[in-house]
Amino acid sequence: MKALVVDDSALMRRQIGEILTRGGFDVTTARTGAEALLRIAEDKPDVVTLDINMPEMDGLTCLSRIMSETPLPVVMISSLTEQGALATLEAIALGAVDYVHKPEGTVSVAIKEQEDLIIGKVKAAAGARIRRSTGLRERMAAKRETIMRKTYIPRARNSGYGSGNEALTLIGASTGGPAVLEEILSSLTADYPMPVLVCQHMPATVTRHFSERLNNYCAMPVVELRRQTVLEPSTIYVARGDADMVVMERNGELMATIAPSDKRYNWHPSVSRMVSTAMDTVTADSLIGVLLTGMGDDGAAELAKLHRAGGYVFAESEESCVVYGMPRSLVESGCVNEVITASQIAARLERVANTRMHAIKTAMKA
Results as ranks from 00 to 15, higher is better:
186 S>R: 08
251 N>Y: 09
216 N>E: 11
241 G>P: 08
160 G>S: 14
223 V>T: 12
172 G>R: 06
223 V>S: 09
162 G>E: 14
178 P>H: 02
183 E>G: 00
213 R>Y: 05
261 S>M: 06
175 T>M: 12
221 P>R: 15
181 L>R: 03
191 D>S: 14
162 G>I: 14
206 V>N: 03
230 V>S: 09
204 A>K: 09
165 N>A: 15
196 V>D: 03
187 S>M: 09
173 A>Q: 01
162 G>Q: 14
184 I>S: 06
159 S>L: 15
258 I>G: 05
157 R>Q: 15
187 S>R: 09
222 V>M: 07
176 G>K: 00
243 A>L: 03
217 Y>T: 03
238 V>S: 05
163 S>M: 14
198 V>R: 04
173 A>T: 01
228 Q>L: 11
258 I>L: 06
160 G>R: 11
189 T>I: 09
237 Y>W: 10
170 L>E: 03
185 L>N: 05
240 R>F: 06
167 A>Y: 07
175 T>G: 04
245 M>K: 00
208 R>C: 00
173 A>R: 00
181 L>T: 03
169 T>E: 10
213 R>Q: 10
220 M>R: 09
225 L>K: 01
157 R>S: 15
159 S>Q: 14
235 T>R: 15
172 G>S: 06
211 S>E: 07
158 N>G: 13
153 I>H: 14
258 I>R: 00
222 V>W: 08
214 L>H: 05
158 N>V: 15
171 I>H: 08
235 T>K: 15
180 V>A: 10
253 E>M: 07
204 A>Y: 02
227 R>Q: 12
154 P>D: 11
187 S>C: 10
181 L>S: 05
